Amino acid sequence: MPAKFTLICIIHSIIERDITEHIVKEAIVILRRETNVNLELRIITFFPKNSQVPKWIPLFADENILRFTGKFALLKDPHDAIKMTANAADLINIGRDNFPISSISVFLTGFVAEMESVQSDNLFKIIKLNVTEFAESSQGGPTGRTFCIKCRYLKSDRRIEKKATRIRKNSNLMITGDMIYIDETLEYIVEIQDINFLPMSIAMNIESPTGESALSLYSWLAGQSSGRISA
């Protein structure tokens, strides 16, 4: 599973290019941080040319404020440290003067590469997580590239520490938190909000208890209805 992100940002500029089935928009966006030091990011979006294909991202322009959801990967090039691709977005109808502070909320799964006991400031403990970025290959099948991301939690957080004591190398974890950019070290780090352990056999254990099709368990008489409810 790729690493997922959600954030609120303002569009600074857009570069548009045409490919076979999509219009690709690469947006330079600005994230307002609590430190009042803005963060500049690049988010790639795809707009299908086929009008029959659902569009989950609205058309946007400079100065628009949006909530983006998508996947990300960390890159080795320090000048282009993170790649973010959006798969959904919502326009937020507020002006630039009311642009809110936003964090980068993340959800990721991966295998533990290393545990660092304590940082030099004696406040945080570090988990290095190997995450696989999934994408479509030119042959149509899935392909993956693994990247390592640091996740940290406060040493004094007893709830997280209790879970972290069970972590071993290659433990399969699901981590939720906020991704921050450390100006001093020029790197992205996830501040952990929760940790859950995933069994290696999780995919094998998901099966129907009866072997019947789920659709066969539901039926209604023709004309029977209690009205329509919009989702």
Rank of each mutant, 00 (worst) to 15 (best):
T35H: 05
T6F: 00
F60K: 07
N50W: 04
K169Q: 12
F99W: 06
N64F: 11
S208N: 13
T69D: 03
I10F: 01
D183K: 12
I15G: 06
R96V: 10
V24G: 11
Y181E: 07
F134K: 13
T176S: 13
D121A: 02
E34T: 15
M1N: 06
P199E: 10
T85P: 00
I23R: 14
A73V: 14
E191D: 08
E116P: 00
L198N: 02
H22N: 14
T165I: 12
T176K: 03
I43K: 00
R159I: 02
G144L: 11
I8E: 06
E191G: 01
M115S: 07
G70H: 03
G95L: 11
E114F: 02
L154N: 05
A113H: 01
I189D: 08
F111K: 15
L39M: 13
E207V: 15
V112K: 02
I94N: 05
R159A: 05
K150S: 03
A3G: 12
E207K: 15
A27W: 05
S120G: 00
I43G: 01
G70K: 01
F107V: 02
Q52A: 03
I182N: 12
S102K: 03
N122K: 14
R33N: 12
E191R: 02
V118K: 02
S219N: 10
R145W: 05
A88E: 14
D178S: 05
N64A: 07
V106H: 03
N87W: 12
S120R: 01
R145T: 14
I126C: 00
A3I: 14
K150A: 04
T69V: 12
T143R: 14
E26L: 01
M84C: 09
V29Q: 05
N50M: 01
N170C: 10
T35G: 04
I82L: 13
K155I: 08
A81L: 11
L74Q: 10
G144A: 15
I195T: 06
E184T: 10
